[in-house]
Nucleic acid binder design. Structure first.
Lengths: 216, 216
DNA sequence: TGTACATCAGTGAACGCGCGTTCACTGATGTAC
DNA sequence: TGTACATCAGTGAACGCGCGTTCACTGATGTAC
C-alpha cells in the first residue's frame, strides 16, 4: 500500500499527472496490473492518494521551514515561499498534480483532500494573524465590495481569525500571488533565458506582496 | 485549415488539452483521421496552432478592453485583468493549454509562440510605462538583488522601457499575481462555496497589486 | 503433532477502447496542348 | 472543343501501442481442531 504510493510518486517524477497509469505503477512494482486492484479501487483513488501525499509533503516542508526560524513575519513568509518553490522545483509533476490543470475526468473527494490542501494557506494566515495581533500589520482602510466582505467574514468566523476582513482579503492576494509566481517558474512561463535567478525574482515578488499587506 | 483550428477549439471546449486528439478533430470534421495529415504534420503542430490561436484571441480581448477606455492606469489594468478572467472563464481548456500544466511531451517552437504569448505582459507593461512617464507611478526605493537587476536591465533595453528596473520587477509581481489569481479561479483552487463572487475578489487582489506598484 | 480448511496476495488472459502515424489507393478537379 | 495528363483532397486498412477494468484461477500462508 505504502509501496504503491511510493512508486506512484516515482512515476510522477517521470510523467505528468495526466498520464500516470495504474499499469505503469504495477509494472514498476513488479506485479501484474490487476494486482493493484487489491489495494486501490480505481485509478481515481490512486490519484487521490497521491494528491493527499503531495499536499502533505508540501505541508510538512512548509511547517519545517516555519520552525527553522525567523521571528519576523516578513522572514517567515519568505521562508514559506521558498519552501513552496523548492519543493515545486524538485517535484514539478507532483506540484502540477495539486496546483496545475485539474486532471480531466477526476474529481477530488473533498473530505480527503480539503484539509491537507489548505495547509499552506493556513500557515500563511497563521503568520499574518500573529503579526496582526502583535500590531505589526497595518490595517488598510477602504471598504470591501459586499460579496467579498461577506465571504471574508464567514472565513473569519470559521477559522476564528481576529484580523479584519480587509486584511484577510489581502492574504488572498499573497496566497494566489505566491502560487502564481511559483507556477510561472515551474511551468516555464517566463521565456527561456529572460530570468536567470528565479529564486531571487520570487523573493522580490513576495517582498512586494508583503509590503502590500502592510507588514513591517 | 482554418476549419481544423476551429474544430480544435471546439474540441478543447469539451476535453482538456492533454487529451485533445487528432482523431477526434478528424471525426468532428467528418473526415478520416489520416486526412488531417494533409494539413498538419503531427499532433504537436496541431497543438502549436491552437496555442497560437488561443494566445492571439486572448491578446485581442485584452487589446479591445484597453481600447474600450479608462484613461487612468488603474482602470486600464483592472480592465486587462477582467478581460483575462472573462476569457479564461469562458474558455477554461484553452486557458489551461496556455497557462496550465505544460502538455507532456510537447515542446512549443519558440519562434511561433513567443510573440503571441507575450501580448498580455506587453499590454500591462505599456500601461505601467505610460503611468511612469506621466509621473503617476511612484518609484520605489530599495535595491534589487544583482541577478534580478541584471535581468531587468536586459529587458529594459530589449523593449526600450524608460521605467526603472525596480518598477519593472514589480510589474512581474503584477503579472504573475494576475495569472495566479485567475488560475486559482479557473482551476477551482478556492474550495467550493468559500468565494461567492470571484470576479469581485479578483478586483480586490488586482487593486492591491496596483497599490503595490505605487500607481495612483 | 498433524490434518482440514479459510484467507488472501498475486496471476494471466481477456474485454473493448482510443490513440498517432504510415501507406498505397481512388476519384474528382483543373490545366496544357 | 476535346483529349491526356497532373494535381490534390480524401479514403480505408493496417501497424503497434498502452490504457482501465473484470474475472476465474493458483498457491502459499496462517488458523482451528
Amino acid at each position: 500500500m505504502r509501496e504503491i504510493v511510493r512508486i506512484g510518486r516515482e512515476q510522477l517524477a517521470a510523467v505528468g499527472p495526466t498520464e500516470l497509469s495504474l499499469r505503469s505503477v504495477a509494472r514498476e512494482l513488479g506485479v501484474v496490473s490487476s494486482a493493484v486492484y487489491r489495494y486501490v479501487a480505481s485509478r481515481d483513488e490512486l490519484l487521490t492518494l497521491l494528491i493527499v501525499d503531495a499536499f502533505d509533503e508540501l505541508g510538512d516542508e512548509v511547517d519545517a521551514a516555519l520552525n527553522r526560524g525567523g521571528r519576523h513575519a516578513r522572514a517567515q513568509i519568505q521562508q514559506i515561499a521558498s519552501a513552496v518553490r523548492d519543493w515545486a522545483a524538485r517535484e514539478p509533476s507532483r506540484y502540477a498534480l495539486i496546483y496545475g490543470t485539474p486532471v480531466p475526468g477526476y474529481h477530488a473527494p473533498a473530505e480527503r483532500t480539503v484539509d491537507p490542501g489548505t495547509r499552506v494557506v493556513m500557515a500563511l494566515l497563521g503568520v499574518v494573524e500573529q503579526a496582526y495581533l502583535d500590531g505589526a500589520a497595518a490595517v488598510p482602510g477602504g471598504p470591501l465590495p459586499r460579496p467579498v466582505r461577506t465571504d471574508m467574514d464567514a472565513l473569519r468566523r470559521e477559522y476564528d481569525l481576529q484580523m479584519p476582513a480587509v486584511l484577510l482579503a489581502r492574504c488572498f492576494a499573497l496566497w494566489t500571488g505566491l502560487f502564481g509566481a511559483v507556477s510561472f517558474d515551474v511551468f516555464d512561463q517566463y521565456g527561456t533565458d529572460t530570468i536567470t535567478d528565479r529564486a531571487a525574482l520570487l523573493k522580490v515578488q513576495i517582498d512586494l506582496y508583503i509590503d502590500a499587506l502592510g507588514i513591517a
